[in-house]
Design a protein around this nucleic acid. Structure first.
Lengths: 142, 142
DNA sequence: TTAGATGCAAAGTGTTTGCAGCCTG
DNA sequence: CAGGCTGCAAACACTTTGCATCTAA
């Protein structure tokens, strides 16, 4: 939970008002090992905070992203998902079960923050395929 | 034009019916050096083929993607864009002018087609930042 | 007290779907 | 002639927006 405290500090320093809703989103993300979509987050929070709205979840996630405490992934073409870890790392999307997983590969962006003269601020490497669990299921059916 | 012929051959071998509309999409993509969205393609084709529909453009692009002659990029969160080059290579998105550019970096997916036991079928590395042209404009305004 | 956040609903945008009619082989 | 493609419009899903109300500092 050290991460959570650090994030809260960082947000406070930026002058962000920490409402119940924002803390709830932050906390949920901190305790998750998946990469939830907006709707995933909304549905879970709805249980504890029945009046929370999708618009708030959307705006909070944007706020957290802009503050650099979470990152948004564009790995699925239908909807965004979020990663509580804001540090650069990469992802795998299983086309079968639609899970998103962190992966340990290093994707070197040549010279620090610069490629062909373009200023690089962010890098996302997305791998697509079939995850090990789905491969096992497929095998066992053979 | 060699590429175009090869693609047409490949599609024919797969038994794909090459209608006027499909050829038009294919040809347009072959003569483009950008990464057009569905709407970009639709608008251009509309001039030459006033009755063409968006649905046809969508279905054609999916067909071409499935046949492996073009690739779809998920680099912008609002809409898909397409790359006539189906071979693996990576992309840069300029947040200022919203251009998508091919970039020469190599993003090594460790062992051939496999990471952490997951079967990798496709890799997309997306870099985000400000392109060299927009950087120049920004400088000249200083 | 008040600037700014929330909740609700409507609007917006890209994409998919259903189906009648048309075309191609 | 038959299967499949096209064009049109409606349906869909995710996201954004507008605004009245509420709330944290």
């Amino acid at each position: 939970m050290k991460d959570l405290q650090e994030k809260i500090e960082r947000l406070k320093k930026k002058g962000v008002v920490l409402t119940i809703q924002r803390l709830a989103v932050l906390e949920l993300l901190e305790n998750v090992c998946t990469h939830p979509t907006v709707d995933d987050i909304y549905k879970v929070l709805k249980e504890k905070y029945p009046t929370i709205s999708q618009a708030t979840v959307y705006s909070t996630l944007e706020l957290l992203k802009d503050a650099g405490v979470v990152q948004q992934l564009c790995i699925r073409k239908d909807k965004a998902c979020f990663d509580p870890n804001p540090k650069m790392h990469h992802h795998f999307f299983c086309r079968r079960c639609e899970k998103v997983l962190d992966i340990p590969i290093k994707c070197p962006v040549s010279k620090q923050g610069e490629v062909d003269g373009h200023k690089v601020e962010e890098v996302q490497a997305y791998l697509y395929g079939v995850c090990v669990d789905c491969l096992k299921v497929a095998e066992s059916k053979t």
